[in-house]
């Protein structure tokens, strides 16, 4: 290989990568660009980067449209995370650190749930929630989300807790700490990073879920995903501009996830690959 040969492909690689990246990011670029235009500009050329006066008007409208959905979705996510992480950590501690009757059986009972796909339980769970009288209530989301998050969380937490050095547990026991104190003072503080990873995976899954909330919640109680998918323009808006307001709503819906990715990129990468390693 001469220097010449080695050098030439490098430009090509950079060029190809940038092109690929722009194409991959294009839906986002298109979305933001058209949220900033008005309907006439969109109809003439959706690929342009014009800005409609008054600047950002559609974001204001989209925020008004989505505000209630945002608060509802955040509440649902927060309560679900408490259950997934809290109960998941408790079980992981038992599986990692305690000896008890039926341990292997109970572990496989949890592990087996990883093989159960969501679509299998979708219909019976819907009928069950209906029979329990939970339709049109946030609990119709929170309770199944907590249950659905257990298996993977326990699996990952257990591996992590097993990796905590034994000496920490022994010295705590010598100091007379009981299991719950050990859990609270040693296991939980040391597990914060792994809890963040699992939390992020659950946040993205819940935030992006459309099928389940659209089955169990009324349109007036939309989550963010429901609100943008079943977009109903406010009567005040000129119909030609509806599409721009829609793009503004999509943009707003994407903002929390983009911020999470920016701040917690490392945890996301760890979480994504942790699932693969386990296989």
């Amino acid at each position: 290989m001469s220097m010449n040969q080695a050098r030439r492909p490098k430009y090509v690689i950079y060029l190809l990568l940038v092109m690929l990246l722009v194409l991959a990011a294009y839906p986002m670029i298109f979305m933001v660009a058209n949220a900033l235009k008005n309907g006439d500009q969109y109809t003439v050329n959706p690929f342009s980067f014009g800005v409609a006066p008054p600047f950002g008007q559609f974001f204001v409208l989209a925020w008004e449209y989505l505000e209630a959905s945002f608060f509802r979705t955040f509440l649902i996510i927060a309560l679900s995370l408490v259950g997934v992480i809290g109960f998941g950590m408790l079980s992981a501690y038992a599986f990692a650190r305690l000896k008890f009757y039926g341990k292997a059986f109970l572990f496989y009972a949890i592990f087996g749930l990883l093989l159960v796909p969501g679509f299998l339980t979708l219909i019976p769970l819907f009928l069950q929630i209906k029979n329990m009288g939970l339709l049109d209530s946030d609990w119709a989301l929170i309770l199944p989300y907590i249950a659905g998050g257990q298996a993977f969380a326990i699996f990952v937490f257990r591996t992590f807790v097993q990796g905590i050095p034994n000496e920490l547990f022994e010295s705590a026991r010598l100091d007379g700490a009981n299991d719950f104190q050990i859990f609270q003072r040693i296991v939980v503080p040391l597990s914060v990073p792994i809890m963040i990873t699992i939390g992020l995976l659950n946040i993205t899954a819940i935030y992006g879920d459309y099928v389940w909330p659209s089955l169990v919640l009324a349109p007036s109680q939309s989550t963010v995903a429901m609100a943008i998918a079943n977009f109903v323009p406010p009567p005040a808006i000129v119909s030609v501009n509806v599409v721009n307001m829609q793009f503004a709503a999509y943009t707003l819906a994407a903002v929390p996830m983009v911020l999470l990715f920016l701040f917690f990129m490392r945890y996301f990468v760890a979480g994504l690959t942790s699932g693969a390693i386990k296989m």
């Binding site: 990011a25 986002m28 992006g208 943008i228 819906a253 996830m257 983009v258 999470l260 990129m265």
Partner: peptide
């Protein structure tokens, strides 16, 4: 980052 945008 291109994956940060929710699937929906």
């Amino acid at each position: 980052m291109t994956m940060a945008i929710p699937g929906i």
